[in-house]
Amino acid sequence: MENKIAVKVDDLTVAYNYKPVLWDIDLEIPEGVLMAIVGPNGAGKSTLIKSILGILKPIAGSVSIYDEPYEKQRQLVAYVPQKGSVDWDFPTTALDVVMMGTYGSLGWIKRPGQKEKKEALEALEKVGMLPFKNRQISQLSGGQQQRIFLARALVQNASIYFMDEPFQGVDASTEIAIINILKALRKAGKTVIVVHHDLQTVPEYFDWVTFLNVKKIATGPVKDIFNDDNLTKTYGINYKVSIQE
């Protein structure tokens, strides 16, 4: 690829308490790809993006975004956490949650105003949630909650998007809506990195893939490396997936 490198991970090693979870990960993600991170449970997929984003502190290694350290480039990055990581009974509305996406660019103390509200409404529109903007978040379905999270990241207007299992526990129509948005992001030249569970849909949804199981097994275009050999290396057993052409 002649493309620029959007995210570069060097020798990243992370340990949780007593247990090492990621070992010496080197990863280069070119600009403009829609990439899936796949691997078995406990392979460190979420840990990888959390440590790229500075939520977890790695023991060793470094992360750079467009050749600059992550801390300097934070505003280029947006994050969609796992849906289950927050308390959905929190007293707030869908619009309010999406507005949170603007807090980063606002910085300390400054309050969101009309401009931010307009951006949030546009993002809600994009994910098809505008009619629900004043709905209390606990009264949304799982798929709708996921769309709200996606909208919050869209508001950040970033260049690189990290998403942790955005398809988990959502209905079919939400899944289609989300993948369409992701593809639109890629078309606009954004880089999207998704922790993904469902191997069947990898060839259909993504053009780039990273196999991860504590170590990086392989990374590259789906059409080149998404094969039984790498799947077996990652999942440990004879793993066969029929790849639809």
Partner: peptide, 9 residues
């Protein structure tokens, strides 16, 4: 609401 997300901002 979301401590991890706050950190990434």
């Amino acid at each position: 609401f979301d401590a991890d997300y706050t950190k990434t901002l």
